[in-house]
Design a binder for these strands. Sequence first.
DNA 1: TGCTGTGAAAGGCTTCACAGCG
DNA 2: CGCTGTGAAGCCTTTCACAGCA
Lengths: 246, 246
Amino acid sequence: MSQQRHGSTPGNTGAVPAFPDLPEATIARLPEYLRALHNLAESGSETVSSEGLAAAAGVNSAKLRKDLSHLGSYGTRGVGYDVALLVDQIEYILGLDQRRAVALVGVGNLGHALAGYDGFASRGFRIVALFDSDAEQVGKPLGDLTVRHIDELGMAVVEEGITIGVIATPAGAAQAVADDLVAAGVTSILNFAPCVLSVPAGVDVRKVDLAIELQILSFHEHRKASLTAIPGGRSAQPGNQEAVGS
Amino acid sequence: MSQQRHGSTPGNTGAVPAFPDLPEATIARLPEYLRALHNLAESGSETVSSEGLAAAAGVNSAKLRKDLSHLGSYGTRGVGYDVALLVDQIEYILGLDQRRAVALVGVGNLGHALAGYDGFASRGFRIVALFDSDAEQVGKPLGDLTVRHIDELGMAVVEEGITIGVIATPAGAAQAVADDLVAAGVTSILNFAPCVLSVPAGVDVRKVDLAIELQILSFHEHRKASLTAIPGGRSAQPGNQEAVGS
DNA sequence: TGCTGTGAAAGGCTTCACAGCG
DNA sequence: CGCTGTGAAGCCTTTCACAGCA
């Protein structure tokens, strides 16, 4: 699923604390642990058990312990994990100690919402530039920023040190935007357009397709409907932590 | 990962075309195949090979064939798959033949964007009601709809036949909204709030956390930076289909 | 011959269960 | 004694490679 070989950096045994070779599934959960830890820190907890943190993050404790064990031993047997220490450690691993500069392309419906989303700023990112190809939009102010024409992207990436691009354009424009981002030197892309992007090796793409999420839920609705048509089911005990899919 | 047992409906061998017991990973890809098939249909293709469809959906052909084989044999050896037939089949499986009614709770920044997102309407869903707890927002028109107070949720769910709820509130309000949705009879929830929801068994929750997606990309940026610090890497051959994570 | 459908192999992830440390 | 860290087992997913049908 990842595009670059995942082996520990070859010819680098020991000296520099070799970049941990984390399973992809673990990486995807670290942000959730981080959020839970921040909540715990705010509520005054200094330590937390694997059981407690797991509950706060919505996973089981064995999985959490296995995940954290990949980062090294930051827990104390008989006690638990030091919240502040673990926060630092996960933020370091995720590269959040440097507040990354993000470019957002496409200031339509969704782009507007993303540009104004507090969660980015509060969780390690700065949206530093907005782009659109529509002359109508260019020059308009949006929050602290002004929408720029996509031709300025290359310049902005260098000037602002942008490493992540967010695509919030219609599907038809997304591949061209991705090409522009890559040409400008961006190596990570978050794509909200409902289409497959083709990018060179070394560029990471993650996709969020809102309709797909609903379609997956629709499947489960369909399945539940076809099951409840048959007697026997329906033993719901409230208060459980339940989730489906990823 | 799913909350209900996945076995084929017990005591139902044969008679009704037993609801297929699809792997969760396959289900998550069906919407992507469907989108690709719609594109192919629009461009006039009547059949497509596993190779062709796989490329359009951004997966490899072996995986695609395995996935489709779970639905039954809808391909023709030596030829490929009938596009229209496969569209119908996948739409049936996903329960998209009935345009599902969706309630959206929280019409802030993100809620506005979701309410206006074309992709929902064009891909099988109708947003039929908008809710907020903020008296300021209640009564305001938004698209074809008027924002209603969340107290009316129970009524609306019954009247409109809502089965899916979308939560676009701040994290602090999300659990209460989820409880309201469940109490009203909603059995599938798409949660955009950055928090873990606790719901009874039988209710499906999917979560989309925009900051988490960026944090995962940030990890890969961090890793790439630490790798390129060491000589040897960097063999990017453009034109590949590349993606990271799920 | 070309392409699907599928056993079998390989790999990755989760869960279990407990050794071992504080 | 409690809780972490971890080998081992089991399960799920992906990939391979080819039998078999059109």
